[in-house]
Amino acid sequence: MAKVIVVTSGKGGVGKTTSTAALGAALAQRNEKTVVVDFDVGLRNLDLVMGAERRVVYDLVNVIQGDAKLPQALIRDKRLDTLFLLPASQTRDKDSLTPEGVEKVMAELKKHFDWIICDSPAGIERGATLAMRHADIAVIVTNPEVSSVRDSDRIIGLLDAKTERAERGERVEKHLLLTRYDQARAERGDMLKVDDVLEILSIPLVGIVPESTDVLKASNLGAPVTLADSKSAPALAYLDAARRIAGETVPMTIPGEKRGFLGKLFGRRAA
């Protein structure tokens, strides 16, 4: 049975696209057929982060408008044959996404895939509400920073009101993915701690992705973080998060926490 995941945040620049690509690759590595769908019409970037920008022929809007069949628009990943990309249109405007069109595409994707991961645009307008519309699971990407936490709270409200599940009286399974976390700064009291964010947003935690240069490196290369270097700290965080989304129980850690001698001496409990 296909599961639809929306990766969302409200605020821009917190790591939705990075997380979509990384989680998509991680789920596909489990040998489960996965498609990542870019809903950011007009500002697509998932193709670039996935390293498929030169292979885009048709896009989501083409499929919705009947210019192309779904299999023509799907791009198979060169590294993982269980991973596919459905790009967004770069030239059309947001209004070319229609609720009926999206519903049709989602229904067809559900027949062929185990996981459908929708990369939401920032904001709370049409693209974002359509990306979350059919979700069974929501991954709310949040930075430990006030404006990101506030926008996540708003998005959580929308997930409880504007999704198909909410309208049927069911709940969307919500998961917090904390990204760009800096353990040292949090310990110094200069960054919101994991527990602070969890207490404020009160949704379960699915992963803590540390701030890392490996994320930029991966996007430079056009590879999902989990494929660029599967031993890097953010990759380990995303791999664990994907296992949790798939229903496994994995103890929560902050990967790649490097402590010097002094850090070990004065070490504190993990958050």
């Binding site: 709270d153 949090a186 110094r188 200069d190 602070d196 404020i200």
Partner: peptide, 19 residues
């Protein structure tokens, strides 16, 4: 004096109102 507790308090008050 650290800034994170201030961030936390501001968010708690703000979100209580927004919710």
């Amino acid at each position: 004096q650290t800034s994170a507790p201030t961030a936390r308090e501001r968010l708690q008050v703000l979100l209580a109102h927004e919710r």
